[in-house]
Each structure stands twice: as structure tokens, then as C-alpha cells.
Design a binder for these strands. Structure first.
Lengths: 192, 192
DNA sequence: ATGATACAATACAGATCTGTATCTTGTCAA
DNA sequence: TTGACAAGATACAGATCTGTATTGTATCAT
């Protein structure tokens, strides 16, 4: 047996790319198989259904997000700086044509039913992000950490959606993301 | 000839409801015809293609948005109050289970290609909103009206996406939308 | 060498989707 | 009354989609 199967990882990477760029419903399993050069039966051996592949992609995106978050904020010493550097990094990404929005917001839009497995993964991811923001807000001295966390949550998702709307085009409001995050942090932290 | 055709408006209202709740790709023309009780051929008489129906829905949503905007802000005397009252109203709506997000963000997510007609209507709508925010920000005395307009744009879209993600469920961060908008306005307007 | 496994290729089943064709009914105007 | 037209109903064409069945080939372990 090959180490973790090269076919499976090619399949996964192709699906991830297509899901992210073109959407979940717009990407068919035949396209994934053809684009990756892997047989369709091999796809169904590793992922019993398309929904399983979607969920696998979302779980991976969750890991990628958090490992990125840790890496980006590792250099910052204070909680306030961690938030600042994260939003600066998100701004840089969201104003790039490589950004097609947020995999979680995208899946929640395409599958609005809250019982859908992918939608639930999306909600769990956003709640985890909100909790992280809340903890950092508290550590940064925010008077009402939940309120600041909610504000940053709205801001983050607005930036992701701006990226999907204006993909590389001019007029992306995410250009002012980091500055806005800083203003909100300052407004919430008396010891700003 | 009946006044503007009752069949056409029933068709439109049914399509609007289904597009908004379940999504564009998830809603088929057969479903629209069956749900409205109107024949499929009648649908294609008034809307030569599904895309035409989508664009018609988006144009109507644009009108509904702006007439709602005018109505809500009519009572406010200052530009600052107009912004405040709009975001308060949006917060109330976005924290309601009747809100399924934003028709324009939804279409941009499902059809990410910028050449798609519906996507272009969405971009035009958001640019118009941004311009309106900018004008009000300038009138309210913002030092950099574009920056405040961008910030409010991100905030508004974040709230819409929160509504689609947490539809009626607990933990919707849009609960702090109006407060956040006020903080940003205050941060940008020296005469706050 | 031989059997098990991984994989490709292809065809297929059954559902669903957009859009068209056909036929009928009902209504209104002249 | 008769002709024009709006609209319902139904069937259909052709494409596409998820998922399965089948067959053949190559590679690896024993």
C-alpha cells in the first residue's frame, strides 16, 4: 500500500480547488475525477458520497485556518497585537485574487438548511472563531469581550464576502479591514 | 388583458421566496411552476430563461432595498442619524428567522464568475450602497468618508452572512451590529 | 509465481434539470 | 358568435448529476 494513497490526496486537492473557486453545487464528481486524472470509482472508494468529500474539505479548511492563525499570531506578544496582526493578514489575503471568500460562508449559503452536515461544520467553525476572539478580547482588557468578539466576527465575514464579490476587481472594501478592526478594539479597550 | 398578469406576479413571488430561502441553484423551474400553481410554459412566456428570472428578482430586490432605506431613514434629520437608524433596522432584521441573508451576496457566492449577469447586478448594488454610505459619511463629518463607508460595507455584509449562517439560532453576532456601527461612526467623525 | 489489492476506463441506472412542443380550456373583445 | 389569446396540462428532448456495476491492468506481498 502506498503511503496514504497518492490518488486520494490528488482527488482531495482537486476537489478543494474546484469547491473553493466555483462552488459546491457547481462542481460535479465527474469533473473532480476528470480534472484530477483519477478514476471515479477510486473517488467513491475513499469518499462514499459527494457530501463526505465536502465535509472532508471543510474539516481540512478548519485545520488550515487554525494553523494559519497560530502561525500568524505567534510573533505577537499581547492579545491586542494578536488580533491586530490577524486582521492585517486577513486584509492582505482578502484583497488578493487568490481569495474566493470563506469555505464556511460559501457552504452555508449554498446549503442553508441547518441540518445539512456541511452547514453544521460551518457553524461550529464560526463559533470557535468567535470564542477565540472573545478570549483575546478579554485578555486585551475589553469591557464587554462578547460584544467586541461579535463585532470582529461581522467584520471578518464581511471581508470574506467582499473578496468573493469583488474578486481581484477594484473597490474591495476589505482594503480598510485592519484599520477598522483596530478602531473597534480601541473603542472596547479602555487601556487602549 | 389582465392588469400586468396575475400569473406573472404569482410566478415572480414564488420564485423570489424559493431563491431567497433555498438558493438559486437549488430551486428548479419545475418547482417554481408547481409551487405557484402556474404552468411551466407560462413561466417561459414571461421569463425566457431561468437566468432572466434570477435577474428580475435581483432588480426587484434592489428596488425593495432602496425604498426600504429611504423609508427607514426618512425620519432621521442628520446624516449620522440616518446611518444609525439604518443599522439598527438591519440588526433587527438580521436577527430574525425571516432573514436568509442578502440576495446579492447569495448570488455572488453561487455564481462567482464576474461575467455572470446576476453577479454583475450584485456588484452594482453593493457599489451603490457603498456610495450612499460614503455620501452620508461625508455629510456626517467623517475625516475619511471612503474609509468609513468601507467599514460599514463590511459590517453590513457580515450581518447578512451571520443571518444566513445562524438562521434564528442562538449566538448571532448581528445582535451587536448597531452598536458596532455607532462606534465606527464615532471613531471617524471628530464632531461626534 | 500467485493471489490480493489499487486503480483506470467505461458503461449504465435513475433522477433531475432547462427548455420546447403539443393540445386543450377558458375568457374577452368585436 | 367567432376569433384571438392567456393559461393549464402533459409529454418530451437533451443534458447533467450522483452513484453503481463491470472489466481489465498493473503492482505489491507472500
Amino acid at each position: 500500500m502506498k503511503s496514504a494513497s497518492v490518488a486520494k490526496s490528488k482527488l482531495f486537492q482537486t476537489a478543494a480547488e474546484l469547491f473553493y473557486r466555483h462552488g459546491y453545487r457547481a462542481t460535479g464528481v465527474d469533473t473532480i475525477a476528470a480534472e484530477s486524472g483519477i478514476g471515479k470509482m477510486t473517488l467513491y472508494r475513499y469518499y462514499p458520497s459527494k457530501d463526505d468529500l465536502i465535509v472532508a474539505y471543510l474539516r481540512d479548511s478548519d485545520e488550515v485556518f487554525w494553523s494559519g492563525f497560530e502561525q500568524i499570531t505567534a510573533g505577537a506578544t499581547t492579545a491586542r497585537d494578536k488580533l491586530l496582526v490577524f486582521f492585517k493578514s486577513l486584509q492582505d489575503y482578502a484583497t488578493t485574487p487568490a481569495c474566493y471568500g470563506c469555505p464556511f460562508l460559501n457552504v452555508a449559503t449554498e446549503y442553508p438548511d441547518g441540518n445539512y452536515a456541511g452547514h453544521q461544520v460551518a457553524v461550529a467553525h464560526k463559533q470557535a472563531a468567535r470564542e477565540r476572539f472573545r478570549a483575546l478580547a478579554a485578555e486585551a482588557g475589553a469591557a464587554r469581550p462578547e460584544a467586541l468578539a461579535d463585532a470582529l466576527h461581522l467584520l471578518m465575514d464581511g471581508a470574506y464576502m467582499a473578496a468573493r464579490l469583488y474578486n481581484g476587481a477594484a473597490g474591495n472594501p476589505a482594503a480598510h479591514l485592519a484599520e477598522t478592526a483596530r478602531q473597534l478594539i480601541d473603542a472596547h479597550c479602555p487601556a487602549g
